[in-house]
Amino acid sequence: MKNRMNIAFFASSLVSAYWNGAATYYRGIVRAMHARGHRVTFYEPDAFKRQKHRDMDDPPWAKVVVYSAESEAEVLRTVEQARGADLVVKASGVGVHDALLERAVLDLQGPGTLVVYWDVDAPATLDRMHHDAHDPLRPLVPRYDLVLTYGGGEPVSSAYKALGARDCIPIYNALDPTTHFPVAPEPRFEGDLGFLGNRLPDREARVEEFFLRAAAALPGRRFLLGGSGWQDKPMPPNVRYLGHVFTADHNAFNCTPLAVLNISRESMARYGFSPATRVFEAAGAAACLITDAWEGLEQFFEPGAEMLVARNGDEVAHQLESLDTDKARAVGEAAYRRVLAEHTYDHRAAQLDAVLEGRTMETAT
């Protein structure tokens, strides 16, 4: 593999987390790859008002190209700009012209150019392909040099291989300690339990169970809900809705309440081995995290010591009732030590480099 790769990355957005839950993941991976000497050009569409809701300027560790997605011709012209890159990535969930992009990037494949499909929502993508034999991605899967995912473990890898993938390797979410770290509490986020997540179809029922049910069971406790789309959702009176919480405020949101809650989307909980970015953000802030139960949790954190686990809303309420400041601090500090030791994006970038080195050597031979 070349010591320094030229990487073209087609994905939803690097500079805006607005309706874009993968932003933290992209930022962590791209920044860490830049630190290892690679050059990344990140192509993102001008769509979903994300450019009007930027939460960061163009970073020094990536070239950001914002392209018009008003026509297929414009999208294809943008793809052509990536010709000659050492690595071309098409991420899932760009949101506009996904099927076109998934076909078009494969035309860039050739000697010296690997083309990778990077699935940041593998459970949903796999469910979609399994339910639709004519899904446009299905016949393309075997053509990609490699499939990467940000979660799912062996169940997802096996499912992709069954669809013809040459290989499928998870590059899990992680922590960027330069952006997520402990800070002083802020009064606006004071409460007993905070949850941060956008309103999505395969998350809503689980939010009702794990968060709203727990709030209803503990009327004397204060609950905080952050994220887009919940404004018309009926809630118990002890829930305060904050709306969209910008990335710059995530540290204070994690550090201020007694505990914060992670709720996996239904598809990710079903496949397991899919820790959300919020899990690592909370650990990086030394927050006490209560998480819904999912298979593979023990691979990342020790339940009961580094993270508290609940199987339903009643157990969330019980965990919160049993929690005092000293215990919350001990759990959060244990998670902080673990995430710095094993789960930073530097760790993930080193893994990615090793994976890509193997693939480029195979191509060369």
Rank of each mutant, 00 (worst) to 15 (best):
Q319R: 07
G112Y: 01
A165H: 02
A69G: 15
V79S: 03
A328C: 06
D57C: 14
N312M: 00
Q109H: 11
R338I: 13
E74Y: 06
V309R: 02
D176E: 14
F246V: 14
L146Y: 01
E74Q: 13
E362Y: 10
S274E: 05
H134F: 07
R50E: 10
A62H: 05
Q81C: 08
T125R: 07
Y26S: 09
Q109E: 06
V66Q: 02
K52V: 03
A124N: 10
T125V: 14
F9P: 00
V15L: 11
A285S: 13
H130M: 07
A122N: 09
A133R: 15
S16Y: 04
C168T: 08
L108C: 09
E72P: 10
A205V: 09
V96M: 10
D86V: 04
V105P: 06
Y336H: 14
N254C: 15
L163H: 01
D145R: 05
P185G: 02
S68E: 13
G358L: 09
F253K: 01
R138F: 00
E204A: 12
R128S: 12
R27S: 11
R206Q: 07
V245L: 03
D46T: 15
V66P: 05
A335G: 15
S71K: 13
L340K: 13
N3W: 14
H38N: 15
H34K: 11
G296I: 10
D192Q: 04
A11H: 06
Y336W: 13
G164L: 03
A165W: 03
M5S: 08
T113D: 00
H130T: 07
R329N: 07
M33F: 11
R36N: 10
V147Q: 07
P182G: 03
A159I: 07
N251V: 05
L175N: 08
I171E: 11
T41G: 04
Y67M: 08
V183C: 14
W230V: 00
L261T: 04
A341F: 14
L320A: 10
V120H: 11
D132F: 02
D346H: 15
G227C: 03
L114A: 06
N3I: 13
A124C: 10
V88T: 01
P257M: 08
F181S: 10
M56L: 15
A330M: 14
R188A: 11
L323P: 09
P187N: 12
P59G: 09
E102M: 11
L175C: 06
R128P: 03
R213D: 05
T24L: 06
C168W: 01
R103F: 01
